[in-house]
Amino acid sequence: MSKPEFIARQGRKPTGWLGHIVARVMARETRPENERALHMLDLADGDSLIDIGCGHGETLFEAGAMVRLSDSAGVDFSEVMLKRARARNRDAVWDTRLTFHCADTAALPFPDNRFDKALSVHTIYFWPDPTEHLAEIFRVLKPGGSFVLCFRSTEDRRALETYPSTVYRFRSVSEIETTLAGVGFQTIETCSGRFGSRLVHWTCSGKP
């Protein structure tokens, strides 16, 4: 059964009182995907990390518990999510190890070659042209930097049946890998796993 469109739109950009509920649900439901993405990044003390579509901020909190991040950032365009993210990461924000930005991820507010590592989890469905967003991630990564993209694909029939195509667009793994290569990423590898009924993919790539 397909989700109502107004609920699906909250998944894209949580707003209002309903957005706060969606934020709590998303933090719980997507935790396994986020944890696996973090482990794939092989974080080290002193790394600068950017979370593209950081949402609730739980992933950056977990990253900060694993290592001592430096000069890191979360980007989202939902003020509801950013309010929650800042509160969850108040200590890292207070001592300036972490900042949060309300921005379009197709135009990131950072200079070239800024971050060591990047990740983005369950965001690509909402990008009309993924090339723009992936090119921005490539731009802000340092040479030798790593990027992990987590997503559900056209291989997941449950996703296609559940989420309205007016809000979510699912792509094939090969399409996403081709797009990453097209903006300059190399050493592109995808692994897959199931969490209940969800088929999830993690594509790792690097900036030469």
Rank of each mutant, 00 (worst) to 15 (best):
D71F: 14
R24E: 13
G206A: 11
L119D: 06
T96H: 10
F100P: 04
V67E: 04
S146V: 05
R139H: 01
V183E: 10
Q186V: 15
E35D: 11
V200I: 15
F195M: 01
L98R: 08
V121H: 02
T105N: 03
C204P: 06
S165W: 03
G74W: 02
T178R: 14
A107S: 07
H39S: 14
S197R: 03
D104H: 01
A37V: 09
W127D: 03
F147A: 01
I188D: 09
L49I: 10
H20Q: 15
E35H: 05
L149D: 07
D71G: 13
H101K: 04
A159F: 12
T190L: 06
E132R: 08
Y125F: 12
F170P: 05
R88C: 04
E79M: 02
L119T: 08
D112K: 09
E189F: 11
F185I: 04
R68N: 14
H56Q: 15
R152F: 02
T105Q: 01
T203N: 03
M66S: 14
L108Q: 08
D51M: 10
S2M: 11
L180H: 00
I21K: 14
R9Y: 01
K13W: 04
G193T: 07
R194E: 01
A106I: 06
E161L: 15
P4T: 00
L149V: 13
F115L: 01
F138L: 01
F138S: 07
L199F: 02
K83M: 02
L18H: 01
F170Q: 04
L43H: 09
M66R: 15
C204F: 02
D76W: 00
K117P: 09
T178K: 12
R12V: 05
T179V: 07
R152Y: 01
R152M: 15
D47T: 02
L49G: 08
W94T: 04
V75P: 08
K142N: 11
K142D: 07
W202Y: 13
D104Y: 09
F6S: 03
C150N: 03
A65G: 13
R9V: 04
R114K: 02
P111F: 11
R24M: 12
K83T: 09
V173H: 10
Q10P: 14
P130K: 02
P14H: 00
G196W: 04
R84K: 11
P109I: 03
C102V: 14
L199T: 03
G19Y: 00
V140R: 08
D116S: 12
W17G: 06
P128A: 14
K207T: 13
E29W: 07
